[in-house]
Design a protein around this nucleic acid. Structure first.
Lengths: 106, 106
DNA sequence: TTAACATATGAACATTTATTCATATGTTCA
DNA sequence: TGAACATATGAATAAATGTTCATATGTTAA
């Protein structure tokens, strides 16, 4: 637990480039399809087709968005035969989503 | 072949509408100008012009983005004479940014 | 090898969105 | 009241982005 009474605690301002990267990260979370994918694979890994069926969306759409998630290192990939299974990369990702949910649901 | 075996229920999947709201929230964080504004006013409230000067951007740009932040209840507003002072709404907002920073900086 | 399936990708299109310019609204003080 | 200042806003523009369609790549089994 943190004590909020510290009077003059200044967090350093992150420099410009970091803030651009941060914006890019949040941009990835700022699309409902990607969010739904992340939530869908947050507990168990899933194949691309399985995700597409679950969300009732085109395989192509899911694949495109999975690439975005991959490029941002938010998902893990595992190939098994013809299928490719995706899962959330780490609990960090889940935490970010939950943090946002807290704000939305309040 | 739509026979989906019941998944092991861990956390409940947030319903569709909540995920849309969540995406909208992250969308707000997914712009570097808005992020810079939020970081800038995270410690001390600031007038619009002051923010614009600090970030070296047009007053109009800042004002437009402040409206977005206002509409999403991420900032607090206080008028004092001609000036209008903005500050971050609560520590929740700061937490979300810090959580994202953790991921970006790792 | 070929057929069937699973996934990825490029191009086109439509939609969203951030910024700028010009101007409106609102406030203070002479 | 009017001038000067601070902020907000509408319209226009340009850039970014998500989805779809068609097709390519990659894998397995016959």
């Amino acid at each position: 637990m943190e004590n909020k009474t510290t009077p003059t605690q200044h967090t350093e301002m992150p420099d410009l480039e970091v803030l651009f990267d941060l914006a890019d990260l949040f941009k990835v979370f700022g699309d409902s399809t990607r969010l739904r994918i992340m939530v869908t694979i947050s507990e168990n890994e899933m194949s691309v087709l399985n995700i597409a069926e679950t969300l009732n969306m085109e395989q192509s759409t899911i694949s495109h968005q999975l690439r975005v998630l991959r490029q941002n290192k938010l998902v893990r990939v595992r190939r098994d035969g013809k299928q490719i299974y995706y899962s959330l990369d780490d609990d960090h990702v889940k935490k970010i989503i939950e943090m946002g949910l807290d704000h939305v649901l309040e």
